[in-house]
């Protein structure tokens, strides 16, 4: 290839490239500040919780205490039964949630990209969105029994709706000018989907995934509380019947940790896909 004609001479790109982005310099102290303040607040509340119980202000029967919860947790793990419960709940969550992703995203893409599909499926999605899906539990148990399958179904339905709706919205808000660029270059429909529509949809998609994860966990809990033979929710229900507040709180903590874990993981993945976005000023 011949030597390129240069249409523009930029003085020295390296000079600019070497300069570290100043935003990063600010980010560190701010990030630590956020962690410190956030961490201190949580720790403070836990300490307060422990204090009111230790000082005898509130009977631990009603609110347990951090120490008792940890003891209940250690006991449960030493006992070993908890593993089976965690396993069952995890399977319910993973199967239902992953199925919801596998169906919800294509569904949202289809209704977002194709008017006929949205006419066809839009009403169903709206109706499903208007009712809490856990209200279908009695029927789902009638259909699928009280075992894993009714839980799969309720978790799936719980997560499916927000994922499909968020994806659909993401596709619809796609900017026409980028679609025009793709068409001008003769992009195929598949290329249009992967190079224009999906990248533009990422923030919506992940909002849907995070919201869906919450709905999926809700499905696990309610499904197991309502009727089940195993699972962390089942453990909570049993402990509740025995007024074993500490074990109830321990179960709640397990769900909490799971929820935070899933959200953190999704945030990481989203950041990876969204690294092209101008970083807004760190707060």
């Amino acid at each position: 290839m011949r030597k390129p004609l240069r249409i523009m001479t930029t003085p020295s790109p390296q000079a600019t490239l070497d300069a570290p982005p100043k935003a990063a310099g600010l980010a560190w102290p701010l990030r630590w500040q956020r962690r410190l303040i956030g961490g201190a607040t949580v720790l403070g509340l836990v300490a307060l919780w422990q204090a009111v119980v230790s000082l005898g202000l509130i009977d631990p029967l009603y609110i347990s205490s951090p120490v008792l919860v940890i003891q209940a947790g250690i006991g449960a793990f030493q006992d070993g039964d908890i593993w089976a419960d965690i396993r069952v709940s995890s399977i319910e969550f993973c199967v239902g949630y992953l199925a919801a992703i596998a169906i919800g995203i294509p569904l949202g893409l289809a209704t977002g990209m194709n008017r006929r599909f949205s006419y066809l499926l839009g009403p169903f999605i709206d109706i499903m969105n208007a009712v809490p899906r856990v209200t279908f539990l009695p029927i789902l148990i009638l259909w699928f029994g009280i075992g894993l399958w009714s839980k799969f179904a309720v978790v799936f339905l719980g997560a499916l709706v927000p994922i499909a709706i968020a994806t659909d919205t993401g596709v619809r808000t796609n900017e026409a000018r980028f679609v025009r660029v793709a068409r001008s270059f003769g992009a195929s429909r598949l290329k249009l989907l992967t190079s224009i529509i999906l990248p533009g949809t990422v923030p919506y998609l992940f909002t849907g995934l995070k919201y869906g994860a919450g709905r999926a966990l809700l499905g696990v809990v309610v499904g197991e509380l309502y009727a089940s033979t195993a699972g962390v929710g089942h453990m909570i229900a049993d402990a509740g019947n025995l007024f074993d507040t500490s074990t109830v709180m321990f179960g709640v903590t397990l769900f909490m940790v799971t929820g935070i874990g899933v959200t953190t993981l999704l945030n990481r993945i989203e950041q990876h896909f969204d690294r092209w976005r101008p970083q807004e000023q760190q707060r």
Partner: peptide
């Protein structure tokens, strides 16, 4: 080909930058 035209418009060294 891409490298040739990026060079032509004087943007060598900026290949991996994002538009923003």
């Amino acid at each position: 080909r891409a490298a040739h035209f990026i060079d032509m418009v004087g943007l060598r060294g900026f290949e991996e930058r994002y538009p923003y």
